[in-house]
Nucleic acid binder design. Structure first.
Length: 316
DNA sequence: AAGGTGCCCAACCGCGGAGCA
DNA sequence: ATGCTCCGCGGTTGGGCACCT
């Protein structure tokens, strides 16, 4: 028997969201919280299906969504995590605060895959690519199952290549972090190496099982717009979406929205800085100078001056 | 300047799992 | 145990943009 569609598609709108729709959705969720997505569009007055609303919220409108290119550090984490977890984008995303599975998936498919191939690494298996045969044109590696999670036998090979994070599911014994060697081995000598090494030192026992999965109430929030926060250090949007990158700026929120943010952020906090969630962004991944030649400081991922908001801040 | 091509990424689709009656 | 609903995930698509000719 066929599965029922998630919603009655007749008369429902598809495609890009408009500012008006975003506004309705945000206002509704801030007022009522995230409940029963199926009911959201009806209650919010949207001609969308619940799935579409959920996707829009989780991938774009959520206040904690960090936008823009992944930093070098984040990229390395994604590679390590992918070697460990395979295409489990949501799991990977849960280790990268503010990043969504969709964003990581896209970044993997458009950037990291290419980068790894360039380095002679098969992005699917994380093993070295076989050298292209002289009489054969370069081609995609044979369809190989994603390493979901990589078989133990492959683990060593993979570690040889990119030094994946050691699995510690059943191990209490701390192992030296692979991240450090990953960074050391990285052929891309990057400018923020010092920062990364600091991070490595901080996270000497780094292992994905030990990274707390970010829960909604633990979301990163810059705590002071006047301090050197990610938002203040980032000066340009790297989003390609002309509307969406400044969606929250362009929206005129209802009083409930403004109240909400001033309440949870404090009167002098992020609210004024809400001129686009993209302000939370890290910049170009290989440089601390963005495309407009405005120097920005890329904050190390784990050194965000973050405020872990409590339940009060996220009482959905 | 105009048309072609490739890339990027927001959004959609369909499936699987969890929870419930 | 079974069937249903809902949510979340991963794969895929296609519109828009940038770059090239």
């Amino acid at each position: 028997m066929g599965r029922q569609p998630c919603c009655d598609k007749v008369g429902l709108k598809k495609g890009p969201w408009t500012a008006e729709e975003d506004k309705k959705l945000i206002n509704f969720i801030l007022t009522n919280g995230q409940c029963c997505w199926r009911a959201v569009p009806k209650l919010a007055g949207l001609l969308r299906c619940g799935k579409s609303c959920r996707l829009r919220w989780t991938n774009y409108l959520r206040p904690d969504v960090k936008r823009g290119l992944l930093s070098d550090y984040e990229e390395k984490m994604v590679i390590d995590l992918h070697a460990q977890l395979g295409n489990r984008w949501s799991k990977i995303a849960s280790h990268l605060p503010g990043r969504t599975d969709n964003e990581i998936k896209n970044h993997w498919n458009t950037h990291i895959k290419k980068k790894l191939r360039k380095m002679g690494i098969d992005p699917l298996t994380h093993k070295p690519l076989p050298p292209p045969a002289a009489d054969q044109p370069p081609q995609e590696p044979p369809a190989v199952q994603e390493p979901s999670p990589a078989p133990a036998a492959d683990q060593n090979k993979m570690e040889e290549v990119i030094n994946i994070i050691p699995a510690t599911d059943h191990e209490a014994e701390p192992k030296p972090t692979s991240l450090e060697s990953t960074i050391n081995n990285s052929e891309s000598a990057n400018n923020d190496g010092d920062n990364i090494m600091e991070l490595v030192n901080i996270n000497n026992d780094f292992c994905i099982d030990e990274i707390p999965v970010i829960q909604p109430h633990e979301i990163l929030i810059p705590c002071d717009k006047n301090s050197s926060t990610p938002s203040s250090s980032s000066s340009s949007s790297s989003s390609s979406s002309s509307y969406s990158s400044n969606v929250l700026e362009e929206l005129q929120f209802s009083p409930s929205f403004e109240d909400y943010y001033s309440e949870i952020m404090g009167s002098n906090m992020w609210y004024d800085d809400f001129s686009g969630l993209d302000l939370l962004i890290n910049q170009d991944d290989h440089s601390d100078v963005n495309r407009d030649n405005v120097t920005v400081i890329e904050p190390p991922l784990l050194q965000y001056p973050l405020m872990v908001s409590d339940e009060e801040c996220w009482r959905f």
